[in-house]
Amino acid sequence: RLQDARVPPPLPDAPEVRSDLLDYAVEIDWFNKQLGRMIEMLERSGELDNTFIAVTGDNGLPFPRCKANLYEWGTHVPLAIRWGKLKGGRTVEDFVSLADLAPTFMEATGLKPAAGMTGRSLMNVLQSGKSGWVDPQRQSVLVGRERHTPAQPDSPAGYPTRAIRTRDFLFVRNFKPERFPAGNDPVYRDIDNGPTKTFMLEHRNDERVANLFELGFGKRPAEELYDLKKDPGELHNLANDPAYAEMRKKLSSELDRQLKTWQDPRALGKGDEFDTYEYYGKK
């Protein structure tokens, strides 16, 4: 039912949007049923407890200001893990990057993480048997985007951006704020087509949609800062607010430090070569 849909803050609350979200929920429900069938097959074969199962997603909701963006509804994806050697029925709140999965799989099989891996194994968290925030060293997570689709006008360039997320704040650095994060008007190719995108395009000048449209489709400043306790929807950028100057400086420095440790070209003043790489099947 439309009234059952939970509309994320970056999207307008309208019947068209609610219906779109429910359609998406149906797809997730279908996936869950197929997953259940696979687990039942493992159980019948006697291999369930001997199988390490990890279920996650590659991006957030396929909606404006969600997928292909570094905000909550673009980077926060589900992660469910089952293994016969682990205590189940727990919810863990630690920050996890998908880059952590490879070293986790390796440690689970008795191997050491390969040299050059930036992810950290989750085995200490999984084997702890604890719920909530388990590993005090997992204070934050870094996320980033380089290119998603060829959406810039007359250019194969992407929209390079990096962010650091803590429990209370999200700090985003947009390396090319002069570009279009969602692609250029009127196509906005970097946003998945669908009823919600169509509704926002058709009602972009409506009072209830205009601000959300600008946040999801418009250009963005070089830096963004959000207070997640006061603004969980990440709608009010505080990067230029004097009251948050120290926090902006702290998170900016930590983001820089980590990116340089990983030798991220963008953090080293380089990275334009990324914009020249060919897309598969395109010149």
Rank of each mutant, 00 (worst) to 15 (best):
Q3D: 15
D4E: 12
R6Y: 10
V7E: 05
P8A: 14
L11P: 01
P12A: 06
P12R: 05
D13P: 07
A14D: 12
E16T: 15
E16P: 05
R18L: 14
S19G: 12
L21T: 09
D23Y: 12
F31T: 13
L35G: 00
G36L: 09
M38N: 07
M41D: 14
L42Q: 14
L42N: 01
S45A: 11
L48M: 08
I53C: 04
T56K: 03
T56M: 05
R65V: 02
K67G: 00
N69Y: 10
N69E: 11
T75E: 04
H76G: 03
P78E: 13
L79C: 11
I81L: 13
G84A: 08
L86R: 01
L86Y: 10
K87P: 00
G88M: 05
G89V: 06
G89E: 07
L98I: 10
A99W: 10
A99E: 10
D100G: 10
A102T: 15
F105A: 11
L111E: 15
A115N: 07
A115V: 13
M117S: 15
N124P: 05
S128A: 12
K130V: 05
G132R: 06
V141Y: 07
L142K: 11
R145Y: 06
E146K: 07
H148E: 08
T149K: 10
R162W: 06
R165F: 09
R167H: 15
R173E: 12
K176L: 13
R179D: 00
F180M: 03
G183C: 00
D185L: 04
V187S: 05
Y188W: 09
R189S: 02
N205G: 01
N205V: 10
E207K: 09
A210T: 02
A210D: 00
G218A: 02
G218I: 06
A222I: 04
D227I: 11
K229D: 10
K229A: 08
K229M: 08
K230Y: 09
G233R: 01
L238N: 01
A239V: 13
Y244Q: 05
A245M: 05
A245E: 13
M247A: 09
L251M: 06
S252A: 15
R257E: 13
Q258I: 11
Q258L: 14
L259W: 14
K260Y: 02
W262T: 07
G271D: 04
D275R: 03
Y280R: 12
K282D: 14
